[in-house]
Structures are given as structure tokens and as C-alpha cells.
Design a protein around this nucleic acid. Sequence first.
DNA 1: TTGTATGCGTTATCAA
DNA 2: TTGATAACGCATACAA
Lengths: 342, 342
Amino acid sequence: MATIKQIAELAGVSRGTVDRVLNNRPGVKPDTAELIRKIAAEVNYRPDLAGKILAARKKNLRLGFLTLEGDEFTFFHDVTQAARKKAVELQNLGVEIRFYLVREFTRSGLEALAAQVEGDQLDGMAMVPMMTPAIISLMHTLEARGTPIIFFNIDEPSVKRLCYVGCDYVRAGRVAAGLAALTTGGRGTVGLLTLHDSDNYSYQERALGFTRELSERYPAMTLLNGGAPTIFQHGDYSAVHTLFREHPELDAIYIVNLGDFSVCREARIAAGERPLSIITNDLVAAQREMLQSGVISATLGQQPEVQGALPLQLLYQALAFGEAPGADKLYTDLNIYISQNI
Amino acid sequence: MATIKQIAELAGVSRGTVDRVLNNRPGVKPDTAELIRKIAAEVNYRPDLAGKILAARKKNLRLGFLTLEGDEFTFFHDVTQAARKKAVELQNLGVEIRFYLVREFTRSGLEALAAQVEGDQLDGMAMVPMMTPAIISLMHTLEARGTPIIFFNIDEPSVKRLCYVGCDYVRAGRVAAGLAALTTGGRGTVGLLTLHDSDNYSYQERALGFTRELSERYPAMTLLNGGAPTIFQHGDYSAVHTLFREHPELDAIYIVNLGDFSVCREARIAAGERPLSIITNDLVAAQREMLQSGVISATLGQQPEVQGALPLQLLYQALAFGEAPGADKLYTDLNIYISQNI
DNA sequence: TTGTATGCGTTATCAA
DNA sequence: TTGATAACGCATACAA
């Protein structure tokens, strides 16, 4: 493997000149530049990663990671865990990472957080774009400063960002539909179930993908209530019981947002002896247990570990080496988990 | 983040002394060593990765990757692709990788290959343990030289190796059983199907896991012929047609080894109008297509990309930094693929 | 327009 | 038992 030094010797020039050419910096005679480029191509020059990292240390990069605080049983807990692991890795390359965890959505709390972030002089920011005034204002400040931002879990195209890392929710809905079909021989009746306050982006997209996939690909499947979801409240599952009483023909349900997890148990109880397949999202701790015990039939993952780690990695590569992310939207895998492969 | 230099200053000694202590090398006065250790712990010292890589370059490592040659539609093709990608990455760290692809199992061919490997003075080897005389002899030679070996895809405990990277086949069989149950409401009749020459390790293990999981967890499921597989020949699927004619009650089949892929189509045709779920292994190109078109219901993956990349990565870490692999057996994920998430 | 010198953190050799 | 020094490959400030 060739090094800059070797190329310099072959070209009969100094390392500095070679570096100028390979990094497209001005101040080299065209003929010389041409020669060096030719030699570099000939010896298949690839810059040594360790050398680049070492040199990049001098930039003393500082990155931010802004996310929702999640207790042990939530999706964002898994994301933050992954981010902390990646943070240790990047610290070993001389990068500093600051974490900003949003606990409550109080105005003063968010404003204080935003002020803190603005004062921290970050070189890059990975965050969930929470559309509250304080956070929106923060994003605009970072945008104005030219600080690169990467969004994860939720995209927000109205803000200039480097890229998005997270789930393709429409596609997730389609996978859920495929699972519903798979578990009912392609001829079942399936319903949507969701928590009362689920009029959010990810719910809408998943429901859309689910209904579309069913109608486009599984004509023999019946979608209950034309795709209108059964809505339940935190701690009150009477709507679920009513659903099963009124629809004995129900073969499968896709619970889009759970809130807590009791709803799965309630649904299983309400279904009684009938075979019923229950499909959910996000393999958090509580759901592992329910998959094991057969309460939940299948769960769709969206790689929280990637959502936590990749944004930081991409920011580092962008700032340290000037490498752009590979795509505008980097979608996570849509993993299917059942009792045996968790 | 602290560096050796900073620790040296704090301790009032030279970098060399700090290095000796932190790398457990002899020749340091116990008192001094104690002090340095204390300071290192206090400042939470973690060695800089780039520095280590750079220093490790001087070792001029050379690794080997020995695998079956696979054409575009085979599992080993995906493995080799991943290995080549990782090889480029490691080349950028100053490591040389040599590939040895086994095309045919002729005695002379294997002997020539083994001789070549032995002459190449490798520092480490990633390989599939093919138990033919020439390769066995090669493994013993490497073992005698103290060259670390990592096996992937198939384990071979009789040879001293650093670790195994690959599928837990028994568990894969259990996942297949879970899928069979999921697609038949837990009450179906399911059969095993496999190619004639499948009396190999991975077949045995998968069949074992499959039958065990069914009997232990799904008492309402019926396993056809007590788990004895229906065996078909390359290009001759009469056994498959006979199977469906004699067993109209069949709801699902797990095709353990396919050989070519026509068997899936034949089974779908033989099943006629009945809902039948077909479960297979390994998401190679041809199977993607069949998942899309609905011929195959679900496929179990075993991360060929990890099997190709991780062994090389682990060899590098072992040889460059003296880091042992995290476990004796590193199992790949058992991914479930359906039409919508490939 | 080009060359030289220095530093990033770690490791290893040589000298004291 | 310890210190000083050079080397790995890259980037860059400064000198020529």
C-alpha cells in the first residue's frame, strides 16, 4: 500500500507538494500536479486512515447529541445507550460528545436546554427535531452558524440538515401488513389499534403503508373499519374488549403505538381461544418478554443501535475528513422478531 | 481525554516508563508503576485508537481468507464480497490480505492451494474448515506455527482456533419452527424438505432445532413423518409432487437445503390452491426474487456480510493490539425476511 | 511554486 | 530502572 512519502519519492518532489495535489489545494504547477495524480492512480493510493484520524485530532471536535430522555423500557433508551457507546469510541479519537436529554416538554425547560446548547459552541449536532419553539429556534441558530445537523428517528425537511438516519415508516407499515397476511394465510381480517394521542407523523406513515400494502397486494385480506384504528386510552382498555366482542372474525391486529404494554395482554385475553396474531413495533425490554411468552406474535424493529450510533459517526466523518454521508436519507433495517430470534 | 504524554508529566516520568507500565512490560520500579497506574485510572486513560493503529503498521501484517468459490447466486459469494470490502478497509491500515478460493475439490487442486498458503507466511488465517486431507494438513501446519486461525460458517472444534464466527444452526432450526407455527396459527402440519446429499452438519443441526422447538413449544402442531425429511434430487422434483399428493393436510414446509431454487416453485405448484407457507434459508439473489413474487413465504438469513468481515477484523485486532475475540463462538443474527423487508 | 519542519499518540529501540 | 529518540502517515504552518 502506497504512502504519500513513496509517491513523493517516485515523483521526485516533496511530501508537501504531493499533499497539496491530493487534497486539491492550490499552488502547484499543473505539470507537476498531473504527474503526481498519475503516479497516485498507478500505485492505487488510498490515504491511511490512522494517519488521517491522528492529524484530525488537532481540530478538537465537539459534537452534541440531543434526544428524548427515556426510562429503561423505551425505545429512546436503547438509542441513547448506543449513542453513549459510540461516544466512548469517538472519545478515543479525541472527540468530545455532549448529551442533552429532554425530560419534560415545559417551555422554560426547553428554553434553558436550547440556551445551553447554543453556548456550548458545537461543531456538529445529532438530534431529534422536536418542533417546539425553543428547539426550532435552536435549529435555526445552528443553521445560521453553519453547524452541520443530522436528524435521527424523525426527519424534518424544513430545516437544512446533512441527512436523516432512521425508519422508513411507510415501509414499516408495509412489512406489518406482510406479516399480518403471512400469519393468516393471506385471507384474514386485520385491524389497526393505537394509543389515543397517536396523530403523529410516524403513526400516519405506518398506517398509510399498512393499508396500502394490504389493498395493493392482498386482495383476499379484510381491513377492519376501512383502516380506521381502534383507539384506546392509557390504562383503559375497554375499547379493546369491545373490539373483540363486536368482531369475532378478527384474525390479526397491528398495534401501532402501545403507550404502555398492558394493551397486548388485554388483547390476548379478549381474543380468548381464537388464534390471533398480534404485531407490534420496537423490540424494547418489555416486548421481549411478551414475545417469549407468546403474548405478542411478532415485532418490527428499527435498529435503535444504528439510530444512536450512526449520526455521531457521520458527523465525525464529515467534520474530520470532509466526507459527505452516503445518502440524504439513511434508512434503518426493518427487522422482524419472533419468540425464537430475539 | 488523557494521553500518555500527559500522564508522564503528571507522574514526573518519561513516556517510555508510562508505556511500560500500561502495557504490563517488565522493568519498572513497583512504586513508580503503582503511581502511574493510579494516575491513569484517575484521568480515565484510554489509549488513542489512531495512535495504536499507526504504531501497529510496522508489523506489516498479512492475513489469509480461505473460502469456497461461489458464483453470483450462492451464499459464499455474499460472504466473499463482504470479505473483500473489509480487505480494502484493512489495506488502508497497512494490512495485506490474500484470498484463496476453492473451486473444485480435486486432490491435486487442494494440495496446490495448501502449499501456496503455507508458502505465504501468513500472520493469521480466516477460513472455512473443509475437512479434506490437504486442508486438514494445512490447518495443522498453521497450528504448529502458532498462526491464529478463525473459522467462519462452520466450526471445527478439533482444531485449535481463536474463535468461530457464524450461524447457530440449532437455533436457526428453532426460528424456522417458530415461523412455521406463526404462519399456521400454531395448529398446522409441517414437513421438512431437503436435497439428497444433505447429511451434513448444518442440516443435522437445523433439523434438530426444528423438531425440538416444535415438540417443546407447539404441541398442537403436527410434524410430518416424525421429522424424517422428504428428500429430492437435483432437477428431479417428483418426490415433492408425491409429498403433496399424499399429504393434502400439509400447511407449511421448511426447505433446509435447496441445491438449486426450482424446488420452491415446484412445491408452490404442487400445493395448488391451498395456502402453503414455504420457509427457506439464506437470502441469496434468487431467493429475493421468489420472496417478492410470493413463491417463498419467509427466509432465514445468517448475515453473510458479518461472516465475511468479522473474522478478518478480529484477526487484525488480535495481531495488532493483542485483543482476544469477545467470545469463543460469535453467532450471527437470525434475520427473518419476507417480501416487504428485503 | 515548492520544500522543510513539526505535531498528532503509541510503540520500540537504544543509551544511560 | 529509566529517559531520550525515532518511526508510523497525514496535515499544515512556515520558509525558501
